[in-house]
Design a protein around this nucleic acid. Structure first.
Lengths: 232, 232
DNA sequence: TCAAAAGTGTTTCCCCTACACCCATGG
DNA sequence: CCATGGGTGTAGGGGAAACACTTTTGA
């Protein structure tokens, strides 16, 4: 009911931010992990993240960490869930505000050279053992991603500015873990009115070149979905 | 990247939990507010909530607060979002993990007598000025509720164990802020296979009595929705 | 008998699904 | 010329939406 610390000196909690950073590489959905340099879980893989500073907003903290880690800005980033079990960190009370983010691999490659820390991408289907409760966070992020790709355009965040419809379909298939019908997929996507066909083509070896499209919306948009109860 | 406090003594943050408790009363969607007894915002209306104890999980804290406030257990409760602006509390750094919850008014009335603190229900359309960033929290909760009622059965949490189809439809209409077609609503609800008609009727004055139904599922379930991209 | 809410079916239309063949290119 | 992915259309079915009258009760 009341907000203030209940007594004069209140110990306080540590606040961590952690992020599940997804990308698609070689037709596989991957997440970025970093190797912990110090205890606890020294040497184990963990999600990128860090502590929130005393004067820093939680959102600012995750942006800062992401900046440090990836050197790319303008990433799609969304708060996921807050994990607040008292024993989730063996050192003491640390609450974690988890986020997830999506980057496209090409863009990442260009800028990420500078950083050589012990970090690597792992297929989400074959993750190593993770520190803390990070495995749970990844699972939750994956669930959210799979749901949200159905009624928003977050999927486009995994692709470069120009992409072919086959690449787009591939992104959806990788995330959803199932194959989609090519004709139906294309019709639906084009019907949404959020793609613009360019006059450029991508030659992929010795097949017919594929038309490149761009995403017309400035950011992630919510698609008109039919609810069970109410049509929107 | 690393979790621990960066230096030896780390001030730490206060963690608050706040809850938007919804109910339907007199055909109106209402939220519970409490009057603050001490500064800051003394005398202003605010969401029920409190600080998370040093050894307590965040979920446990909100359950405890809810218990103290309402004296009813077994409430539908869901984490909403974490608000982490450094200036959201004038006393210093307090991060709030917000939840929302749904109760049915009848059940609440029975048990809540005992508590006489300064608390009251307000129609969500006519809220007073709220302390902190609580208005934003309420708006966010409302948005989530409106979305989620479309593809889950949370709506049933606002009704007593037995209810008429008209009452159920009324709950949906109040939350969504629009009228629904009676025949289509009934057909859809019965088709879902989550309602059982009883042999009891509710006489509502001088009209034909309405059949009472019960919800057959033990808890809130996710309905089979059709995605834009993938049918489930 | 009348007011007021309960209860009930059908038609239309649109969207989703399933499905197979020709096209353009580089090797 | 051939292998490889790019690209295209349709028919059928199912679910959603729109829509109005009869039934039951108490006053």
């Amino acid at each position: 009911m009341a907000h203030p610390p209940r007594n004069g000196h209140f110990s306080g909690h540590g606040i961590a931010v952690d992020v599940v950073l997804f990308t698609i590489q070689d037709g596989t959905l991957k997440a970025l992990l970093v190797k912990r340099q110090r205890p606890p879980y020294r040497g184990a893989w963990a999600l990128p993240g860090g502590m929130v500073g005393p004067e820093e907003s939680v959102d600012a903290a995750i942006l800062r960490e992401l900046q440090e880690e990836t050197a790319i800005g303008n990433i799609y980033l969304e708060q996921l869930y807050t994990f607040g079990e008292p024993d989730r960190d063996p050192r003491g009370r640390v609450i974690s505000v988890a986020y997830y983010a999506l980057v496209n691999w090409q863009q990442f490659q260009l800028k990420a050279r500078q950083r050589v820390s012990e970090a690597d991408w792992f297929p989400v289907k074959r993750l190593p053992l993770l520190a803390f409760d990070h495995r749970r966070i990844v699972d939750y992020a994956l669930e959210r991603l799979r749901n949200k790709i159905n009624y928003t355009t977050i999927g486009f965040q995994l692709l470069p500015r120009q992409f072919t419809l086959t690449e787009l379909q591939g992104a959806y298939e990788v995330i959803l873990g199932q194959r989609l019908d090519k004709r139906n997929f294309r019709r639906k996507m084009l019907q949404l009115g959020i793609l613009r066909g360019t006059r450029e083509f991508k030659a992929n070896g010795r097949q017919r070149p594929a038309r490149l499209y761009t995403f017309t919306e400035p950011k992630v948009v919510k698609l008109q979905e039919k609810g069970i109860i109410v049509p929107f």
